[in-house]
């Protein structure tokens, strides 16, 4: 059973290189947290915060 990235949330628009997952550019840290939490709940996905501060929403590949 693999995993897939559902959403990528970053504050740095230079990091967006295109690709499959939805990428959201949100500058405000507080808003980032709230958005990723809400999306995580709605999509029943796990939330990972990378060391660079970006968020990734990950779900099982069913």
């Amino acid at each position: 059973m693999g995993k897939r990235i559902l959403v990528y949330v970053t504050a740095d628009d230079k990091r967006v290189a295109g690709g499959d997952p939805l990428t959201l550019i949100i500058q405000d840290r507080q808003e980032q947290q709230e958005t990723i939490t809400e999306l995580g709940r709605a999509l029943r996905a796990d939330i990972v915060q990378l060391k660079n501060g970006d968020y990734v929403l990950i779900a099982d590949n069913k």
């Binding site: 947290q33 990723i36 796990d46 939330i47 990972v48 915060q49």
Partner: peptide, 9 residues
């Protein structure tokens, strides 16, 4: 794991 992405978790 590194799945604790939010402060709440």
């Amino acid at each position: 794991t590194n799945y604790l992405g939010t402060d709440r978790s």
